[in-house]
């Protein structure tokens, strides 16, 4: 790969059925590029969690993936309520997901810890009332 590859997706917040679609498409591209299975797996888990969060906690957003010679960068951006206490949100098991969402198997409070564990680099910028930007970097 001499140039970088860029992918961009809208994450509709009103359709939970589409949750995971963007991550699935990015993952397909990563596989087609012949990236190492471990890189694909790490990226897949982390970006799926970020995508789901934007949809269930922030009413949707966008997912952008860039792949160059050395890394995969996934940026998930939303204009939702933001995260007031990031340290608390990062704790395993902490979740504000409504009961209806939990019944579907989401909202285990594992998303942010999972991102942290699988990304080589995780950056979360969040402002209450403005939104959240999650940047996931996985090195090839």
């Amino acid at each position: 790969m001499s140039k970088s590859i860029q992918l961009h997706f809208e994450l509709p917040g009103n359709d939970l059925a589409l949750a995971g679609e963007a991550s699935s498409k990015v993952k397909k591209t990563l596989n087609q590029l012949g990236l190492k299975p471990a890189v694909v797996k790490k990226t897949a888990v982390a970006m799926y969690e970020a995508e789901i969060n934007a949809i269930i906690h922030a009413g949707g957003g966008t997912l952008a993936a860039t792949i160059d010679q050395e890394k995969v960068v996934v940026v998930v951006r939303d204009q939702g309520p933001g995260i007031a206490d990031l340290e608390l949100a990062m704790q395993e098991g902490y979740s504000t997901a409504p009961e209806k969402i939990r019944e579907m198997g989401f909202g285990a409070g594992m998303g942010l810890p999972n991102m942290k564990r699988h990304a080589d680099l995780l950056e979360i910028e969040s402002a209450v009332g403005q939104g959240t930007v999650v940047t996931i970097i996985v090195y090839l």
Binding site: A17, G20, K41, G105, F106
Partner: peptide
Amino acid sequence: DLLSWVMSHAKKNDAWVTVHTHVNIVAV
């Protein structure tokens, strides 16, 4: 049946047994 847990702990080529039947299990 916790999707996050399955995403990060199930191994490639595992058969996944779950009581969920909604469409989101496919993406997982």
